[in-house]
Amino acid sequence: MQVRSAPQPGTRDTGSRATRTLGLVTLVGIAWLLAFGLGFSPADRDQRESVRILYVHVPSAWLAYLAFVVTAVASGLYLFRKQHSLGWDHLAGASAEVGVLFMAITLVSGSLWGRLTWGEFWQWDARLTTTAFLFVTYVGYLAVRRLGGDHHQRARRSAVVALLAVLEIPLVHWSVRMWRSLHQEATVLSPDGDVKMDGLMLFSLIVGVIVFTLLYAWMVIHRQRTLTLEDVLDDEGLDAAIVERRREAEQPGVGSVAR
């Protein structure tokens, strides 16, 4: 067991040249999304101006799905590869956290859209209910990550939960077809491959998807690095406590009560 004598002050944060470039590109993308989403994109014939909410609602939902799939894949790689690298566990945890954020945004933006379109903020509709259930499941996943134990116990336990939780995603996606639902069916990813959107609206939606993908990547990278730092400091704290305990045990008279 190696104990670092005195921690050298870190000279950097969780950023790197690549993340700074990614952050700048993302900021430009956000400006584009605001310009197209709130300005250039036309109002819809049926949904009128409320269609603009979909340029943040749909990308956040898709990226939440992607985040949870990445969590499951990273969890599987942790569990089934021989090395059991904690890097995969950090990626899984970071991706799940960002996915929960995007899922929360999906629920809030969806309820605002629902108020304009259906006249109600919330309905116990199949799509809405399964989405809320998915959100609560991944909040539970994050809670499981915070239970006690060492890093590998945490990684194993949460990987199993992640591999089970991801099975909910097809249920959420197909809920509009499996049950009678207020929520509209897929407009872009419809099974017949026919995209039922005006060109500029579709372009705005694509801008939204690209921007949310960049945001996802930026946040996951930083969060993954933060999780790495947390584990390093946790290990150092544990190592220091063990050294301290051994030193106490070596002192004459200490521990005689236990004997």
Binding site: G10, T11, D13, G15, W218, M219, H222, R225, T226, L229
Partner: peptide
């Protein structure tokens, strides 16, 4: 929401990075 989360992650990352040597990053 995204800005608040990003800010929180960056602040926490900075605080932790100061206590960890560069060879562990």
């Amino acid at each position: 929401a995204i800005a608040a989360y990003a800010w929180r992650v960056r602040i926490r990352g900075r605080r932790l990075a100061r206590r960890v040597p560069d060879d562990a990053k």
